[in-house]
Design a binder for these strands. Structure first.
Length: 488
RNA sequence: GGCCCUAUCGUCUAGUCAGGCCUAGGACACCAGGUUUUCAUCCUGGCGACGGGGGUUCAAAUCCCCCUAGGGUCACCA
């Protein structure tokens, strides 16, 4: 049991949550750095809520993040199966073992009775808890009633005393056993509950370190007691601070997107997602906010994790996304942005491939203007519009109309641009355009504002010479001619 | 409410374990300038925090106690 083995055990009951992503990242990085094994186990004991699609979404999401696992439902491993629903026989045997050793006992209370008990306690403002009716039932009697077909659940017999453990992020934590109920291990239908399976499987899979969200902190003493009942050495625990929404409560859909898929669909770069998640409860050196997955792995240690919850800051996330985009190579950015262009119907994948050089120029001009891949299509939409009637942004048109001479300026410029000797390089053309403006003896905006409106319809945006060349001189001239009357 | 956890700028955090190097550093956001044909980028500057009270000590953001505040958890969910 000296091998370092960590795991994540997601339940496949929906989309892949950002909290799971961070937990996975921290576990994975810990194993990576120390040459340990990272196990993926699917916690599908709740058969009614678990779905195959959800499981697939989780695997896909983790892969997208760049996380791979050494053992898991899809790749197998020495402790297979890695889906809890396929391990129920093992769980049942474990429960019987505890029943035999007296660490567990049958409880014949009906759900209705327990329900009433709880309500009564709540009415009296007491902490709801099991009353221990069957805790000391004679084993022979218990056996007889079970054999007679009476329904029961199996409860863990919590001993007297207290449990203290050293949490790798929080330090020493103590729970009085008096505060812990004789919790249910096996339901009436014989299916095992979370606290029970998780320990069975972690024992069987020789898990050495358990890093999970703080919401599990209170489960830990129950689980440690179980390890002890099994005569097993408990793993080391580390409870990660919760990721909080802007309402300072556990991150939920209430205050924003919580599932990884939403961020992927919205065009957050992978590196930015990983980077941001790493920053939730951990910092590289306090100075450096931007780093890659390798750097994270190299420097991560569970003991450096922050104890306090981390409020999710969408602004910083976005900034990180934009920063990541700015650092990408143009070809990579073009690849990343292409699916969004296709999705919005601007170009087909084939067209992008055919006009790759042009497309990369289109992309290069937006690199420092977008924060998300998904913002790209809207920003270049003008290049795909009908030249006679492109959309004018309100502000663009207003800027253009500020200049009395706009129509004559555009007329003259259109003619000038029609000269076949104009350069085909943006920089050279831009320089000549500036010279042209200077020769006219007017200020830059007097020319560029009407021209920008005429050519792109936008108030801001990339270099104008670049826009003209991207469009092609002929199309640009058509747009300028159309503007002659539109801006009159 | 019981139990448990937590507490540095609005937010993410460095510094806390080994008290002095902290008139508390970085980043996002915000504000003001600069660069730029526009927008964006980029650069410069500014704003801005040790929750409160007691101790211990020559010295406390750092150690101790109390209070307060926030969060988590109290299922035959995970």
């Amino acid at each position: 049991m000296t091998d370092l083995r960590v795991r994540i055990a997601p339940s496949p009951t929906g989309t892949i949550h950002l909290g799971l992503c961070r937990t996975a990242l921290f576990n994975w990085a810990y194993a990576q750095k120390r040459g340990g094994t990272f196990v993926l186990r699917i916690e599908d004991t709740d058969r009614t809520r678990s779905t195959a699609e959800s499981e697939e979404a989780i695997l896909e999401g983790l892969r997208w993040l760049g996380i791979d696992w050494d053992e898991g439902p899809d790749v197998g491993g020495p402790y297979a199966p890695y889906r809890q629903s396929e391990r129920v026989e093992r769980h049942r045997r474990r429960a019987e073992e505890l029943l035999a050793s007296g660490h567990a006992y049958r409880c014949f209370c009906t759900p209705e009775y327990l329900e009433e008990l709880r309500k009564a306690q709540e009415a009296r403002k007491e902490t709801p808890r099991y009353d221990g009716t069957y805790r000391d039932l004679d084993p022979a009697e218990s056996e007889r009633r079970a054999a007679a077909g009476e329904e029961f659940v199996v409860r863990f017999r919590v001993p007297e005393g207290a449990t203290t453990f050293t949490d790798l992020v929080r330090g020493e934590v103590t729970f009085e056993h008096a505060e812990i109920d004789d919790w249910i291990m096996l339901r009436r239908d014989g299916s095992p509950t979370y606290n029970f399976v998780v320990v069975c499987d972690d024992v069987d899979m020789r898990i050495s370190h358990v890093f999970r969200g703080e919401e599990h902190l209170v489960n830990t003493p129950k689980q440690i007691l179980l390890y002890e009942a099994f005569g097993e050495q408990p793993p080391l625990f580390g409870h990660l601070p919760l990721m909080l929404g802007t309402d300072r409560k556990k991150l939920s859909k209430r205050t924003g997107d919580t599932s990884l898929g939403d961020y992927v669909a919205n065009g957050y770069p992978r590196d930015a997602v990983v980077n941001f998640l790493c920053l939730q409860g951990w910092a590289l050196d306090g100075e450096t906010d931007v780093f890659d997955l390798d750097t994270f792995v190299e420097h991560f240690d569970i003991v450096d994790v922050q104890k306090a919850g981390a409020v999710f800051d969408p602004d910083k996330f976005r900034w990180l996304a934009g920063d990541t985009i700015r650092r990408m190579s143009v070809p990579d950015l073009a690849d990343a942005v292409a699916p969004f262009v296709v999705r919005d119907g601007l170009m087909t994948a084939d067209e992008i491939a055919d006009r790759r050089e042009w497309f990369e120029r289109l992309v290069a001009g937006e690199q420092e203007r977008i924060e998300l891949f998904s913002e790209f299509p809207d920003r270049v939409r003008t290049f795909f519009e009908d030249d006679e009637g492109i959309a004018y942004e309100e502000r663009a048109e207003k800027n253009a109309r500020k200049h009395e001479d706009r129509v004559r300026t555009l007329e003259d410029f259109e003619a000038w641009l029609g000269d076949p000797s104009r350069p085909a390089e943006p920089e050279a053309l831009g320089a000549e355009m500036k010279d042209w403006v200077k020769e006219r003896g007017v200020k830059f905006p007097a020319v560029f504002q009407p021209l920008r409106c005429a050519v792109t319809g936008m108030a801001g945006g990339r270099d104008l010479a670049d826009s003209i060349l991207l469009l092609g001189v002929d199309r640009a001239r058509v747009r300028i001619r159309a503007a002659l009357s539109r801006l009159a």
